[in-house]
Design a protein around this nucleic acid. Sequence first.
DNA 1: AAATCATTTGCAAAAATGTATCATTAGCTC
DNA 2: GAGCTAATGATACATTTTTGCAAATGATTT
Lengths: 139, 139
Amino acid sequence: MEKCKADNLLKITNTVKTEARETILHAVLDSAKPMSANELHLMVKDRGIDLATVYRAMKLFTEKGLVRPVHADSGLTFYEKSCEHNPPHAHFICENCGGIECLKPYGFDESAFFIKLGQQKDVTSVELILKGRCSSCAS
Amino acid sequence: MEKCKADNLLKITNTVKTEARETILHAVLDSAKPMSANELHLMVKDRGIDLATVYRAMKLFTEKGLVRPVHADSGLTFYEKSCEHNPPHAHFICENCGGIECLKPYGFDESAFFIKLGQQKDVTSVELILKGRCSSCAS
DNA sequence: AAATCATTTGCAAAAATGTATCATTAGCTC
DNA sequence: GAGCTAATGATACATTTTTGCAAATGATTT
């Protein structure tokens, strides 16, 4: 648990620690659902952090394996924490409001499925996205 | 087979038939791999068809179920024909060149998998995208 | 066929998202 | 703390997609 603190993650991934990166990573770690660059920016701009810095941090964190990008239909990219407590999984994106949710395994062994696909030669990542209408928009 | 002609598809989906739509749909049907709006435009612009019209056609055809959009990391959207001869399947996108390939089933029953996911309540479509390095870029 | 009327199209401008540039600042090493 | 490298904010830019609008097209009625 302690290992998943922003401070520590930057250290163990050999990433130069700056105030902006620590703040941004903290925002990602705290969020229960994937966040867009814009949403993250809203959470940190009161500390003088620019949107460009958020994008740069997402790019860096993705390379370091600290976050995973999730690409929505809309062209928007969401980012979620990537760690032992948050392994790859499917996502649900609402066609109506654009909202994103993480899906829990359902029926079959999803985790094994992701691992199996990922083990194919030349495959570096797998994205499984379901679309439809979220519970809020359905009513 | 005859049923998959552009002319017929527009008729059976109750879509107003225009020269532009017929030309664009033809281009999609003829292509073996998913095409971007830009790629499609390159194929039809010598007939005076605008890029905006390609986008409008893709939106319409998607609603009518004639094409399926595939969303790449890059933010680019590709479109492929959607019919009985081309059911949902996984895609591979090269991180290096951005090229896209359709994947054939491998090992497990992919088709059943897509159907199962799609049958969940409120799910209208499923996208499975694998990323890595294509054979051309690997060498 | 000609007239009518909604739909579609081309064109151009604008959104939306993400990237590059560059002067300035912050973080690290000595 | 001086000095160097890397990161940041601000801005401009690039790319993909959408929108507004006048003109053209397609369907329908006469």
